[in-house]
Amino acid sequence: MSYELYELDELLEHIWTAREDGQVLLQEEILAPGGEEAAALEEGVRQGLLLLRERDLSVREAATPVPDGVPGFRVEGLMEVALSPEGERRARDIIRRHRLAELLFTEIFELDEAQVESGACNFEHLLSPKVIESVCTFLGHPRRCPHGKPIPPDECCNRFQVDIQPLVMRLCDLPLGEEGRIVFITPKHHARLDRLSALGLIPGSVIRLHQRQPSYVISIGETDMALDKEIAREIYVRKA
């Protein structure tokens, strides 16, 4: 992927989030901040916007100042950008990839905030639509990223609303009375993994969920066990 396209994606991402937040973006925030390079930056944004227009990704840039408080994307109070349908679609995809990646890193890999951000930023440019669909399915077609912002749905999510269930789900989401085979466990600390494994809870083991309230009760083989929800959330199963 060319550097140019990379930059363009970043720009689209910013346009989308700024619009979502009803926020005014200063020119420096669009690319990297840095006082000295302000002129170069201004030049960069100008080129970026130009590029957007060239590729029919944006339809309008108002050259005149827009009054404060109007939602939209504005550069230094000078310009407003609106996206074309194609630009809209592309921005949606990027946001979707970014937020799904965030969720994947936070929930499954349990990385910390900083790692999640840099990871997600790199990922969003790399993942193919097929992979993204798998990730989305794997996560059970989530609606919100870890920061609570909406994840734009795609076809796979709409299909899900009709019949498809996530491939892998948390133990706590397994329907009552049904069996699931453990796929992996992501415990908060090692001691928990050791305790669960001593009780026979390892990937491959089949467990059944009996109740959620007032505590989670599962059975493995002929043993019944009660667990905290926190632990049930860390066990991922595939419906058997």
């Binding site: 043993t223 019944d224 066990m225 009660a226 905290d228």
Partner: peptide, 9 residues
């Protein structure tokens, strides 16, 4: 600590 408790029949 974690609540992981066996429930004998």
């Amino acid at each position: 600590s974690d609540f992981i408790l066996e429930l004998p029949p």
